[in-house]
Design a protein around this nucleic acid. Sequence first.
DNA 1: GAAGCGCGTTGATCTTCGTCAATTGAAGAC
DNA 2: GTCTTCAATTGACGAAGATCAACGCGCTTC
Lengths: 231, 231
Amino acid sequence: MRQHDLSLIRQLPLFTAIEESHFALLMKSALLQRLPEGVLLIEEGNRPDFLYVVVEGTVELFAGDRYRETTIDILSPVSTFILAAVARDEAYLKSARTLTAARVLLIPAPAVRNMLDRDTVFARAMINELAARYRDIVPKLKDQKLRSGAERLANWILETRRSQGSPDYIDLNYEKRTIASLLGMTPENLSRALAQLAAYGVVSHGKKLQIIDKSALETFARTNAVGNRYN
Amino acid sequence: MRQHDLSLIRQLPLFTAIEESHFALLMKSALLQRLPEGVLLIEEGNRPDFLYVVVEGTVELFAGDRYRETTIDILSPVSTFILAAVARDEAYLKSARTLTAARVLLIPAPAVRNMLDRDTVFARAMINELAARYRDIVPKLKDQKLRSGAERLANWILETRRSQGSPDYIDLNYEKRTIASLLGMTPENLSRALAQLAAYGVVSHGKKLQIIDKSALETFARTNAVGNRYN
DNA sequence: GAAGCGCGTTGATCTTCGTCAATTGAAGAC
DNA sequence: GTCTTCAATTGACGAAGATCAACGCGCTTC
């Protein structure tokens, strides 16, 4: 593994404060895999063998059966995933696949659990991380239960705008169908919702969206009411 | 606080393995409150002062604004809540109110965080607990995104049946409107969904439901999760 | 017992969303 | 350049769900 990758991983909240020797120990047993697009990394229901870290590319977490499926989250570098399953050594609740070609680090689950018992700093970081994950998902549940599809989209646009930093444009980094699945709607309805948001200053330019009137969009989105967190 | 209550709390996964002196320390700074029905314990957006434990009665976790609101969870004794906000010292994402008269234990949040840093066993238990909470909520999100109202109800009935232990009947311990909100539907649609489930062996008797044909109900719950409208 | 109150149910209607089909548009293969 | 392929869009329709209104029923209150 490259030194560059190691230092990126080291900067993750989960690892940043632990002892160098402990970090080295975890990394020693880890595997770095280079994967093409569309590879199934994790299958719902299986037992967790590894803690995963996306080092490069994007990974989609999804759930469902072969008739219906929904996107739970889209992960960009550098982030860990399936912490909860690894911590409890219980079956995955979600599946994961590469959305693009990617490099993924696999840390053996027993090594992680072992370290949790031995390293208090690591344990504390894990608590923060699990709590953060929990706090990511609660707004999503609220979103689904309280808002319409168009409202979810409006909030997602505003949230994405904030995380991407540019005030007037956002990049749709993924296929619209994936975004639709993330937002809990069909691609057709995402299209219609986007058309609807034109009245509130959202203009579609291919894989970019232009935000002409942020405050109008915010009014429509009712951001304050529910809160948001897709990024 | 009564000795009986203390031993109940002590048996919670979060506290069962920690040193007696540490447990005593946490309990020493805790307050036991006796509350009537309908009291707001926690308001979304505020900073967490306490870790809560329901000792007696039931507590509802909910979210939303004054126009729309939804039930996230209903807690029975003995269980902790708002772990994640306390662990990270960040604003509550949900509100909480008593659904019945209740007794609730309040453990000062700083004492909890302090103990997390000092007691590895407690930290490990917190990891397990946070992971469990996360794993509780993921299926709820999947439920909302993948299933219809009637399917959610069917699955909720089966789940409740399992947790209550009696094979033929389940008790609706709460108002139907609360159950509707938990399932993400209106009271009217809950009524209709129940009527719909009569065809699968679910008979309504006031605050009890009779389950005549468990396997038929399971078939409905699972079959529809597969979305086979072609059969 | 009568009246009032609130929950639950039922019916009618409207909105939102999903589904199916047809078409457009953009990117890659040759 | 054209052809192929697949995502995205658009329209038409049907299903699921929300809303509004009316009513029944059990419970409390007087």
